[in-house]
Amino acid sequence: MHLLGILLAATAFWMANSGHYKPLMLGFAAASVVLTLILSLRFKIVDREGSPYVRLLGFLAYVPWLTWEVLKANWVVIRACLRADLDISPALVKVRTTCKSDLAKVTFANSITLTPGTVTVEIQGDKMLVHGLYEANTVPESFIGMDARCARAADPKGAAS
C-alpha cells in the first residue's frame, strides 16, 4: 500500500522531469523506479509518513498562510539588517506544542525555522526551544496560531499515531 504510494510518486517525478517518452528511456525509467523501491525497502522508510497522500489537502491549505507569514516576517528581518544601529535583542523561549504525531511536530518546527527571525533549536517531547531575533516578537503566545494550524494540517483526526 505505502509501497504503491512511493511507486506513484517516483514515476510521477520521473515523468515530470524527463520529457523523453521513447521505449528505451521508459525502460531506464522502470529500472530506476524499481531500484528506488528496493533501496527504500532496505532503508526501512516505507511507512505512512513516506506517502502522506491523505493529508495533502491539509498541507495545500496550510501553504498559502505560511507564505504570507514568511513574507511578513521577512520584512521585519530585512529592516533589522539594513538599520544603521543594530537594535536586535535575541531571546530564547520554550514553546509547548499541541501537535501529537511526529509529522505534525516536524511541520511545526520547520515552519518556525522557515519564518525568518525565529529558529527552532531543540525539540524534546512536546517542548521546543526557539531562538528569536526580537524579544518582543518571540513570546510563546505568538506561536499558538501556527501550532493550531499545523495540528489541523498534519495530525490525523483524533488519534495520535
Binding site: 531571546a91 530564547l92 523561549v93 520554550k94 531543540e122 524534546q124 526551544l129
Partner: peptide, 9 residues
C-alpha cells in the same frame, strides 16, 4: 546533559 543554558530572562 540536557541543555539548560540560555534561559529567557
Amino acid at each position: 546533559a540536557p541543555v539548560t543554558g540560555g534561559e529567557p530572562n
